[in-house]
Design a protein around this nucleic acid. Structure first.
Length: 152
DNA sequence: GCCAACGTTGGC
DNA sequence: GCCAACGTTGGC
């Protein structure tokens, strides 16, 4: 099993939205590196740290699980969508997504500020300056440190 | 709202 | 294939 962190702006799609929906398709990712992770490397049962970006404060707010592996993101063909990509065809899709299932919402946010200050999280991609990747791998030890943080 | 960091595009 | 210009992300 692998571990991931996925960013979403709570104004666009929050952990509360996922809790309500149960399952959601992670559409709209338009970055090749993130696309590659979703298309090639995320597998059923992988755990996902749900991160609120552009939030006050930003941070990890919950847990999800990959429940469908990579498949084409159909918003790329939808002209009315802001995610529409004129270069994508049905034969050759460019963008992929996965589905994730709600697991839990943490009792409080594990803020970016805390992640930066607690040495258990040293080396995590998300605390690196300029780390914009919206789908990123997480080391098992960092994932466990997140769970540990909430069982103290 | 600002702007640093980063990714993409396109002229050459 | 280089790199300047431009667009986006996302913390602050």
């Amino acid at each position: 099993m692998r571990y991931w962190l996925m960013k979403s702006e709570p104004g666009t799609y929050s952990i509360e939205d996922l809790e309500r929906d149960g399952v959601t398709g992670w559409e709209g990712v338009r970055n090749y590196q993130a696309r590659n992770f979703m298309r090639d490397e995320m597998h059923l049962g992988d755990r996902v740290l749900f991160y609120h970006s552009n939030a006050k404060p930003p941070g990890i707010v919950g847990l999800a699980e990959v429940c469908r592996e990579g498949y084409p993101d159909e918003t790329q063909w939808d002209e009315s969508s802001s995610y529409f990509d004129p270069k994508a065809t049905q034969e050759k899709p460019i963008w992929w997504r996965v589905d994730v299932k709600f697991m839990k919402k943490f009792p409080e946010i594990l803020s970016l500020d805390t992640l930066k200050q607690d040495p258990h999280f040293e080396g995590m991609l998300v605390i690196q300056r300029g780390a914009r990747l919206s789908v990123q791998p997480v080391d098992k030890r960092h994932y466990q440190a997140v769970l540990q943080h909430f069982t103290k």
